[in-house]
């Protein structure tokens, strides 16, 4: 299950755990959610069972965010692949 995040909000991690349950989870950070790409958030993502974290290149560059090394930078072509081919479920939160 891919969670597509476009904003920061209280208890994002709790919402992902609630909606995702025990299934394999990945996260795609876009727009203001790119702020979650910093190192301080990565432990929380991993503790929630999120296997991969992707961050949109334009969101990262616009905000001049220093991303954690484990966050994979993706362009729109790659986002299309993630959304259309690589996940059975995509949830926008």
């Amino acid at each position: 299950m891919l969670f597509l995040l476009n904003k920061t909000q209280p208890d994002t991690i709790g919402l992902i755990k609630l909606l995702g349950g025990d299934v394999d989870k990945e996260v795609l950070l876009t727009q203001d959610a790119a702020f979650y790409a910093t190192s301080s958030m990565q432990d929380q993502f991993h503790q929630a069972g999120i296997a991969h974290i992707y961050v949109a290149q334009d969101a990262l560059e616009t905000r001049a965010i220093e991303r954690a090394p484990e966050c994979q930078v993706v362009d729109y072509d790659r986002i299309v692949e993630l959304v259309m081919e690589e996940h059975d479920q995509v949830v926008c939160i």
């Binding site: 727009q31 203001d32 299309v80 959304v83």
Partner: peptide, 10 residues
């Protein structure tokens, strides 16, 4: 916000 821009790019 950037929703419209993101939607069009996607």
């Amino acid at each position: 916000n950037e929703d419209a821009l993101f939607a069009v790019n996607l």
